[in-house]
């Protein structure tokens, strides 16, 4: 490996450059577009030289879109808020449901525990519409249609298996003797769970929560099927926004930038755990 030829260095350099270009260019371009008005966006040939403007962002944030035809109301901020609320609430519910179950699967092996754990995992792989389509009818009947509660419940489909399997791994990594020692010292299993298992698995639980948040945030199909406009997250809202805003491409771009920034920030923060999360706990980064 040490004696790499110049030709190889050049080839490697070119390859890396092409890779970076392909994967980074769209983000870079949309980012630029979000600071432009239609006037500069529609120039032929396109150019990266322009007078940046924040008007797209201010329009999105104030919810007032000034067009030639007059002022248009846009609900983008509502979508952003829905994304935040749905993701955060889903993760909170997922942690409350998933962490005790993960502990049960990791520590208190019981009859049928593996079957249940795998059933939960297999939800991750079933076609979501298979569950969603009947649910649209059920939700009408039990009054969960177009409610946050109904959505949060359905979000467990992706959040729960993720949390369960990642956190389970972290619980399994705690030496059993440490927990035994605490029990023998006179503490109940509940105290042991709170004072030993939870703090020691803490980083893993936090990572699982962050990753689950990203997956919930990026989800599209659940809300597309089950939510009406005022409950929609950005993934669905942005699509509707394209038609609503007519030809204000700069605002669409700004909307995309605002919608992907939170996940980028979280991913950067939790990068150490990303590989583990993406492989549902099978591969450590």
């Amino acid at each position: 490996m040490e004696h790499t030829s110049t030709l190889e260095k050049v080839l490697r350099g070119t390859a890396i450059t092409l890779v970076i270009l392909f994967f980074m260019f769209p983000i870079f371009w949309i980012f630029l577009m979000s600071f432009q008005t239609n006037e500069t966006i529609l120039r032929v040939p396109p150019s990266i030289v322009f007078d940046p403007t924040l008007s797209n962002y201010t329009a999105l944030i104030t919810g007032k879109l000034d067009t030639a035809a007059g002022t248009l109301e846009i609900s983008f901020m509502k979508n952003l808020w829905n994304s935040l609320f749905l993701s955060a609430a889903s993760v909170a519910v997922g942690l409350v449901l998933g962490v005790p179950a993960a502990y049960a699967f990791a520590r208190l092996k019981f009859r049928g525990s593996e079957d249940i754990a795998f059933t939960l995992l297999s939800f991750r792989f079933a076609p979501p519409l298979l569950v969603l389509l009947p649910l649209t009818i059920y939700f009408q009947q039990i009054g969960l249609a177009d409610t946050y509660l109904g959505l949060i419940w359905v979000y467990q489909l992706i959040v729960l298996p993720l949390i369960l399997w990642i956190v389970r791994g972290y619980f399994e990594d705690i030496p059993a003797d440490v927990e035994y020692a605490y029990r023998i010292a006179g503490h109940s299993w509940g105290a042991t769970f709170r004072k030993i298992a939870l703090p020691l698995a803490g980083p893993g639980i936090a990572a699982a929560g962050l990753l689950a948040f990203i997956f919930a945030w990026n989800n599209f199909v659940f809300a597309l099927v089950l939510a009406s406009a005022d409950k929609q997250p950005v993934t669905v809202g942005a699509l509707a926004f394209v038609t609503a805003s007519g030809i204000q491409y700069g605002q669409v771009a700004a909307g995309i930038v605002l919608s992907i920034l939170p996940t980028f920030a979280l991913a950067l923060y939790a990068q150490r755990y990303l590989v583990e999360g993406l492989s549902l706990g099978a591969v450590k980064g």
Partner: peptide
């Protein structure tokens, strides 16, 4: 850096490519 596309919601990625 290369993880950024993966962290982009696929629906939004489509929108980016549409633009």
């Amino acid at each position: 850096m290369l993880l950024m596309p993966l962290m982009t919601a696929p629906a939004l990625a489509s929108l980016m490519w549409k633009l």
